[in-house]
Every structure is written in C-alpha cells, then in structure tokens.
Design a protein around this nucleic acid. Structure first.
Length: 579
DNA sequence: CTAGGGTTAG
C-alpha cells in the first residue's frame, strides 16, 4: 500500500447519529418512545431498552429510523441473537434499511454476534452510491475480529472506491494489529497518522498506545505515552494496563503514583491493573490502600475489581482476606474460583484448593483450561496424585477440553513427585501435542528429587534442544550430578554454559518486615523449606551481621511474617514450623 | 462506526 496515495481526511466525520436537533425534529409519532429508548441505551440499560421496545410495539406505535439504532445497539450489547434477527425484519418492514445510522447499527450488531455473513449481506444490500464511510467503518472494525486480512479487504475496497477515511476507520483497523506479527502494518499506520498531525487526536493516540503495549513493544508504547501532551484517564489506563500485562509491576506502581500526582483519579480499570501488579510483587500495603479507594468510590460491585482483589490477597498470602472477598461475591465466575484456588494451592493448602474446585463444579461452573492448570498444580504440591490424575482425565472425558502442553507438564510433575518416573515418561511419549520445554523441565525436576541421573540426562537433552538458553535445565542437571558425586558431569555442564554464554543470575529472597521487603542473600539450590531454615541458621550464626540488615532474633518476633523465595510466597505455616 | 479491564507454571 503506498502511503502517499492514502486519502486520509482527519476531519471529524459528518454527524450521522441523530443529533439533538435532528433528533427532536424527526422523532415523529414514536417520539416519546424514542426519547426514552435513547436515554436507556445511553445509560447502558440495554435490557430495559428492549423491554421498552416491546411495550412500544404492543401499544401500536410504529418504530422509525430513530428507534432502531438504540434497539439494535441494545440487542448487540446483550448478545440476543434471536431478537437481533427479528429486529432486522422490523427494520426492513419499516423501510428503514437505507438510513445510514440504521445500517451501521445493523452491521455492527451482526459483527458482535460474529454473524459476519449477515453483516456482509446487509452491507451488500446498500446501493454503492449510498454507502458512507460509517458503513465501511462498521463492517471493517467488525471483520477485524475474525482476522486482520478480512478487515483489510474492506479497507482496500474503500480506498479503491475513493471513500474518504476518517479517524474511526483507523480506530477500527488498529486493534487488528495487536499481535507482534502485524506490528509492521501497525507502525506504518502510525506513521501515516503522525504525518497528518493526527496524534493530537487522543482517541487515536490511545489506540496506538495500547497496540504497542500488546505487541510486546512496551518501550514504543512508553515513548508514545511521553509524547502525548494532554493525556486523559484512558491514556493512563492504557499505559498502566500495558505495563501490568508485560509484567513490569514496579513501573505500574510508579505510573500509578505519577497519575495521581497529575490530578487524575483512578477508575476501576486503573485499579485492576494496579492490584494485579501488587499481587505479583507481594505489595500488600499498596494493595490495602487500593482496597480503601475501592470502598470509598463504590467500585466493589465491579466483578473485575473483586477478582483482582481476591487474587491480590491470595497471592500476598492473606488467605483470610482473599476468602472474605471471595465469599462476598454474589456472582462468582470461573475467574473468581481460579484466583482463590491459586491462593490455596500456592500456600500449601492443596486440600482446600481441591475442595474449592469440587465445590465450583457442584455449583455448575464450567471449568476452563486455566483452572485445570491451577488445580493440577495444587494437587501436585499437596501430593494428591490420584486426585490430580482424576482431574486430568476428566478434562478430556467430561469437559471435552483437550489438554495443552502445560497440563501435561503439571501431570508429569504430579507423577514425578510421587516417584512414578516411568509413567511420567510414558505420558510424555504418548502426548498428542508437541511437548514444550516445561514438560521436560518437570521431568528433570522429578529426576532431581528421586536421584535418577540417567533419565535426567534424557530430559535435559530434550529440554535444552527446545530452549537452549533456559538456564534452569543446566542448573538442575548440574545439581543432580553434584548430588550423585559426579564432578566430571558438573564440569561438563559448566563448560557447556560457558560456551553458550549463559550465566546464572543469583536468585534473591525477601522477608517482609513492617511493610518493607528486605532482601536476603542469593538463594542456594535447595527446596524452599530447607533454604529458609539454612538461611535463618546462617543468620543466627552470624548474629545477623554481614550484608543482611535483618537480625535473626528480629525475625522471631516479627508478627505476620511472610517470606518470599524468588518472588513466591512461602506459607506462614512453613515459616512458623521453622521458627 | 471507535479506543482502556482480572485469573497461568517451575
């Protein structure tokens, strides 16, 4: 596509939605109804809008071109396919099919239902001379959902026919570029937009910002963010969510502070991103502050916010608060259950995690692939081998979910920890999907526990073949050799690592003390429990001297102590046991 | 006609 020839016209589109004046002038017989419908639709009370529409028909009033856009939008938002198709008939009967804002509402409704053929049919029925930019926009942005190429087809058609492009056209196109594969197209669109001085249009700038963030190009997103002179709440949210999803948690918290300093008050979307980062960092203090904000602003009924709160408390180790938030939820989705199950599984209470999973099933919630990963992990940590195997088989047989490589990795871990290494290997060899690195990693980990050098070498070779730069394999095998007294083997691994330019970053652990994370010296290779014990013993021997600012005796008296091993919370139970 | 949202491992 040649950039120069694009007829980008970045003026605001001619208003085609009923404006205040045109609306009151043209409401006609359905006037009273239309006004109410518009209000309901504007306030997102879509269900009410549809009820009102039915009342309108029963009362004998005739729907007109000012009725349908609101009703169609309501139907689309509620995903009511059936009434959507009926509405289409009503439109035809009322002779409103050629009204631009009815056309666009109809097209976008069908696209929301993913009935793309119907959307296209509506579009094709519009005479070419009457097709306006908005019609193209509706179809284009809808088709983008089924893949960039489908949307691009419409885009090229627009250009070929000389249909002027508007800001919204770009907005509809950019979401199709949100996978790294299409970053080039996204960037060239961005260049075009910049060339026309269009970045001053905030909506467009925000759209590109989130595109970059989702394309694993978070630095470009930040650069754009810094260039936007007048940011709005959406700009901040896009950047915060972008950082959050890229796992850049400290950047999220920094930006959250900057945002408030700039005089913006966070909304639900902001807080979801912040809470998720708190969960990853174990930042309970900020997490609790966020909860205060949520209470203050009445965001507590937002299910996204609730789920994030559960996850934050669960991953910070406060299972009581996590549970309280979970229990207080009226409508628990599979996400809520996942968050709480992860919490119990992570903190050594696998039995509770499993009970919760069963309870979820009883309540008729359909499990997804993700919750299976979590419950399998919980089983594996709690040594519930048979239970876990049962879940694994039920995935396919009861819920028709084909297990992914991650699920196999969980089961290999499950079998491996139980010492059933042969079965684990058989499972890997019978996998219908290609085993990814972590499957071999799980086997390697099991070989370490059960001191099986021969199988470890096999798992190592397979794993390294897939992920030559993954340091974990080398470290594990080296430790296996070392435990077996095979110093030659240790040497071989060391040479291999040097040749490949791999270096092991020391793992760090933290003790949370008075709301601050205090760094302990690099972790050594041992189980978490052993490590904590060793560390504390060393501290005691040294009298808490050296690089570490925290005294052993202090640790003993700290209440609500939480210990973090490489960012992962170890349960309070384990800590108490050790002290 | 359009942009910003939560849960995943070792």
């Amino acid at each position: 596509m040649s950039r120069q020839s694009l007829p980008l016209c970045f003026k605001t589109a001619r208003p085609l939605q009923p404006t205040e004046t045109s609306f009151s002038a043209a409401v006609g017989t359905g006037g009273k109804w239309n006004t109410q419908l518009r209000e309901l639709s504007k306030n997102r009370q879509y269900n009410q809008a549809l009820i009102l529409y039915r009342q309108m028909l029963r009362s004998g009033a005739t729907p007109n071109a000012f009725t349908f856009p609101f009703v169609l939008k309501s139907s689309a938002s509620l995903s009511v396919h059936l009434s959507g198709k009926q509405l289409h008939c009503h439109v035809v009967k009322a002779g409103c099919l050629l009204e631009p804002f009815v056309q666009t509402a109809l097209i976008s409704m069908y696209c929301k239902f993913r009935l793309f053929d119907n959307a296209h049919k509506v579009f094709d029925e519009i005479p070419e001379s009457a097709r306006l930019t908005v019609c193209y926009n509706a179809l284009l942005s809808g088709l983008i959902q089924r893949g960039l190429s489908h949307g691009l087809l419409v885009f090229h058609e627009m250009r070929a026919k000389g249909v002027p492009l508007h800001a919204v056209t770009i907005l509809g196109l950019v979401p199709g570029c949100t996978i790294p594969l299409h970053l080039n197209l996204g960037s060239s669109l961005h260049c075009l937009v910049m060339k026309h001085g269009f970045t001053s249009h905030l909506d467009v700038a925000n759209c590109f910002l989130s595109m970059y963030a989702r394309c694993d190009s978070i630095e470009s997103a930040r650069r754009l963010f810094d260039e936007i002179p007048e940011r709005n709440l959406i700009t901040w949210n896009a950047m915060i969510s972008g950082y959050s999803q890229s796992g850049l948690c400290t950047q999220v918290l920094d930006l959250f502070r900057d945002m408030q300093c700039s005089g913006f008050y966070p909304d639900e979307v902001t807080l979801v991103g912040v809470l998720s980062s708190c969960a990853n960092l174990g930042e309970q203090r900020i997490g609790r502050e966020v909860e205060e904000m949520i209470k203050l602003r009445g965001y507590g009924s937002n299910p996204f916010v609730r789920n994030s709160l559960i996850s934050m408390y669960a991953r910070c180790g406060d299972l009581v608060m996590a549970r309280a938030n979970f229990d207080a939820m009226a409508k628990k989705t599979v996400v809520s259950w996942t968050a709480i199950i992860v919490g119990y599984g992570m903190h050594g209470q696998g039995e509770v995690a499993v009970e919760l999973f069963d309870q979820m099933i009883e309540e008729g919630i359909r499990p997804d692939k993700l919750v299976f990963v979590c419950v399998l992990n919980a089983c594996s940590h709690a040594g519930l081998t048979e239970k876990g195997l049962g879940y694994f088989y039920s995935m396919q047989e009861v819920y028709s979910l084909s297990p992914l490589s991650v699920h196999y990795a969980c089961v290999v871990d499950l079998l491996g920890r139980a010492g059933r290494l042969g079965e684990a290997l058989n499972l890997i060899e019978s996998m219908p999907v290609q085993p990814e690195g972590h499957v071999w990693g799980a086997l390697l980990g099991a070989c370490k526990i059960h001191k099986n050098v021969e199988l470890a070498e096999l798992a190592f070779n397979k794993g390294v073949e897939l992920e030559p730069a993954n340091i974990g394999y080398y470290v594990l095998l080296s430790n296996i050799y070392s435990e077996a007294g095979d110093m030659e083997g240790v040497g071989r691994i060391r040479v291999m690592m040097r040749e490949r330019g791999l270096k092991k970053d020391p793992g760090f652990s933290y003790v949370e003390h008075e709301g601050k994370n205090i760094c302990l010296w690099p972790a050594i290779h041992a189980t978490k429990e052993m490590y904590v014990m060793l560390r504390l013993e060393n501290l005691a021997r040294k009298g808490g001297e050296g690089e570490n600012p925290l005294h052993y005796k202090e640790i003993l008296v700290v209440k609500n102590l939480r210990i973090w091993i490489c960012g992962e919370a170890v349960s309070k139970f384990v800590v108490r046991l050790l002290l």
